[in-house]
Design a protein around this nucleic acid. Structure first.
Lengths: 119, 119
DNA sequence: AGGATCAGCAACCTTTGGTTGCACATCGCT
DNA sequence: AGCGATGTGCAACCAAAGGTTGCTGATCCT
């Protein structure tokens, strides 16, 4: 159920700095490596590398404008990404629920049949 | 909204091998480093390290049994984790929806007021 | 007892996230 | 036009994480 494409997405979103970057870009609409780094605990260059990762994952898109490069969230791609993450979460949730159902069934069986006490 | 605890969770779940390990453990109920490595493209030692990460994150729990160490998903913790992931996803989703609403409002404004054509 | 199997180090390599330092382009102001 | 200020990109370097091989030690099984 998990594809190779998912891997790039999860690893992009798995980094705490990159998650905060996405939050900032969503809140402000856009940002540059410099403006983002001012609101983050890492240097401008680190942010630039992260922007590269997010760009390659398709989550953001950068546009050159004069001497600065402005990044913004690619809404369509990001929406697709959120949906994929949600679907994995839903799959796990379903799996958990199934396990619990089985556990309850076993419990009921155990209740119906008294324990084999070695007497 | 994102806490330090979340960071450990996301990075634990951000690794593709660790996600597949969780899938396998959920499917089979339990597993050892050896049995898991047989179903994964990495060595037993790599799997052991990943199990350590998942253990420290509280997602799985290992029990010594004879010469083998059996791991299983900690259902309660894992359920909590899935819920946290879902809540972040929901927050992003809400943010996206709000942005789209604003975009539509601007679009309506633009429709109502004809473009300022430089004639 | 003794071979087979499983886990746990330890050393080493590569990739990734992070830093500093520097060179280059663009903006803005006199 | 000239020049400092600002923003970017590239390279070298460092530390941590993911991965490997090799070995040792414990347990199982016949």
């Amino acid at each position: 159920m998990s594809t190779v494409i998912d891997d790039e997405l999860w690893s992009a979103v798995g980094d705490p700095i990159r998650r905060r970057m996405l939050d900032l870009l969503l809140a402000d609409g856009r940002g540059t490596a410099t403006t983002l780094s001012e609101q983050l605990p890492v240097t401008r260059q680190a942010v630039a590398k992260h922007l590269g990762v997010l760009d390659r994952a398709g989550l953001v898109h950068g546009t050159a404008s004069g001497r600065e490069r402005i990044y913004a969230v690619d809404e369509a791609q990001f929406a697709r990404a959120v949906a994929q993450l949600a679907s994995v979460g839903a799959a796990w949730d379903a799996r958990l629920r199934r396990i619990r159902t089985i556990a309850e069934a076993i419990q009921r069986t155990r209740d119906a049949r008294p324990p084999t006490d070695p007497s």
